[in-house]
C-alpha cells in the first residue's frame, strides 16, 4: 500500500480503473440474482406480456411436488456419492503417487486427463462404451458367460446362492444392464462419470498439500511410536492436510451441484426423473418450457445451497487449529 498522500487526480484514477469491473459485477452477477429472486414470486414467461404474482407458490411446489422431490433426491444422492468418492480417490491416488517418487508422475498425467478433456465429448464416448449392444463394457462382461468366469462371478459355488439371481448370473442368462437406460443404474452411471472426471483434480490439490507436510513432523511421530504407515498417516499427514481437505470438499461439492453436461447428453433427467439434477431442472423448466417462475425459484434455492456450503467452509476454516 502506498501511504504517501497522492494528488487528488489519483483518487479519480482509482475510480476510473474499477468502474468497468464494478459495472459488470452489478450487471452480470448482482442484478440477475435480484431478478431471479423477484421472478420466483411470479408466473412470468418470456414472450407473454402479462403475468401474475403468485406469492410463494413456486417455492411450495418445490417442496411438495414429487417431480421436485425427485430433483432434490437426485442432486443430493449425486453430491453425496461423488464428493466422498472423488475426494477419497483423489487422496488415495495422491498418497500412492507421492510415495512412488519420480515414477508417480506418469499416473499424475493420466489421472489429470479427464479434468482437461471436454466433459460433454467424453460423456458421449462413455455412452458409447456403455451401449447395451455394441458397448465395450457389456461385451467384455458377456465374454465370460458360459466359461468358468460365470461360475465364479455368479457365486454359484456358494451353496446358498442361486446363480440366476446374482448380477453376473442374471446378466448372462438375460442381459447385462442398460446402464443409462435403466432407472436402477442411470444415476449410478452418471455418478461414475462424475467421479471419473473429477478425482484427478482433487489428486493434484492433495499432491500440492502433501508437499507442505514437513518431514520432521513425520520423523518425530516415528520417534513417538507411530510405527505403522497408517499411524503416521492418521497422526500427521491427515491432520496436516486438513485445510486442503476442507477446500477440496467444498470445491467438489459446488462443482457437483452444477452437474449438467452428462445428464443433458445422456439421460435428459430420466429414466423416471432418477437423474433429474437441479441444473438440468433449471434448464428444462426455465429455458425449454419457459416456466420462468419455477425456474427462478430453483435458481434461488440452488444459490442458497451454494451459500450454505461456503458458510460451512468458512466456519471450518476459522475453527481450525493451524499447525504451521
Amino acid at each position: 500500500m502506498i501511504d504517501t498522500p497522492r494528488p487528488r487526480g489519483l483518487f479519480k484514477t482509482g475510480h476510473a480503473f474499477v468502474a468497468p469491473a464494478v459495472l459488470l459485477m452489478i450487471l452480470i452477477l448482482m442484478v440477475p440474482v435480484v431478478v431471479a429472486a423477484i421472478l420466483s414470486f411470479s408466473n412470468y414467461s418470456l414472450g407473454s406480456p402479462d403475468f401474475d404474482w403468485v406469492g410463494v407458490k413456486n417455492y411450495s411446489k418445490l417442496f411438495a411436488r414429487s417431480t421436485y422431490k425427485k430433483m432434490l433426491t437426485a442432486s443430493f444422492v449425486y453430491i453425496g456419492v461423488v464428493v466422498p468418492l472423488s475426494v477419497f480417490l483423489g487422496l488415495g491416488a495422491a498418497l500412492l503417487i507421492n510415495s512412488l517418487g519420480r515414477f508417480g508422475n506418469i499416473y499424475k498425467t493420466i489421472y489429470f486427463l479427464p479434468v482437461m478433456a471436454t466433459l460433454l465429448v467424453m460423456a458421449i464416448v462413455w455412452e458409447f462404451i456403455l451401449h447395451p449392444d455394441v458397448g465395450v463394457v457389456n461385451r467384455l462382461l458377456a465374454l465370460g458367460c458360459g466359461t468358468f468366469a460365470e461360475t465364479i462371478l455368479s457365486f454359484g459355488w456358494l451353496p446358498w446362492v442361486d446363480p440366476a439371481t446374482t448380477f453376473y448370473g442374471h446378466g448372462c442368462a438375460q442381459d447385462f444392464p442398460h446402464w443409462l437406460g435403466s432407472k436402477h443404474t442411470a444415476l449410478g452411471t452418471i455418478i461414475f462419470i462424475g467421479v471419473w472426471q473429477g478425482f484427478g483434480f482433487n489428486m493434484v490439490l492433495y499432491l500440492a498439500g502433501l508437499t507442505s507436510v514437513p518431514r520432521e513432523l513425520v520423523h518425530a511421530s516415528v520417534i513417538d511410536g507411530a510405527d505403522s504407515a497408517w499411524d503416521r498417516f492418521w497422526l500427521v499427514t491427515w491432520q496436516m492436510l486438513g485445510p486442503t481437505t476442507v477446500f477440496v470438499v467444498v470445491i467438489t461439492t459446488i462443482r457437483s451441484f452444477q452437474v449438467f453436461d452428462t445428464v443433458e447428453a445422456l439421460t435428459d433427467g430420466g429414466p423416471v426423473k432418477t437423474t433429474y439434477v437441479m441444473m438440468y431442472a433449471i434448464y428444462e423448466k426455465g429455458i425449454l418450457q419457459n416456466l420462468i417462475g419455477i425456474g427462478s425459484a430453483i435458481t434461488i434455492v440452488f444459490l442458497l445451497f451454494v451459500l450454505a456450503v461456503t458458510l460451512v467452509q468458512r466456519w471450518f476454516v476459522e475453527r481450525r487449529v493451524h499447525y504451521t
Binding site: 442484478v31 421472478l39 459446488i254 451441484f257 429455458i287
Partner: peptide, 16 residues
C-alpha cells in the same frame, strides 16, 4: 461475487 457461480444464474441472465 466469488460466491455466485455464473452457471447458477444462467436463467435470469438468459432472460436479460
Amino acid at each position: 461475487g466469488l460466491l455466485i457461480p455464473v452457471h447458477a444464474i444462467a436463467l435470469p441472465l438468459y432472460i436479460m
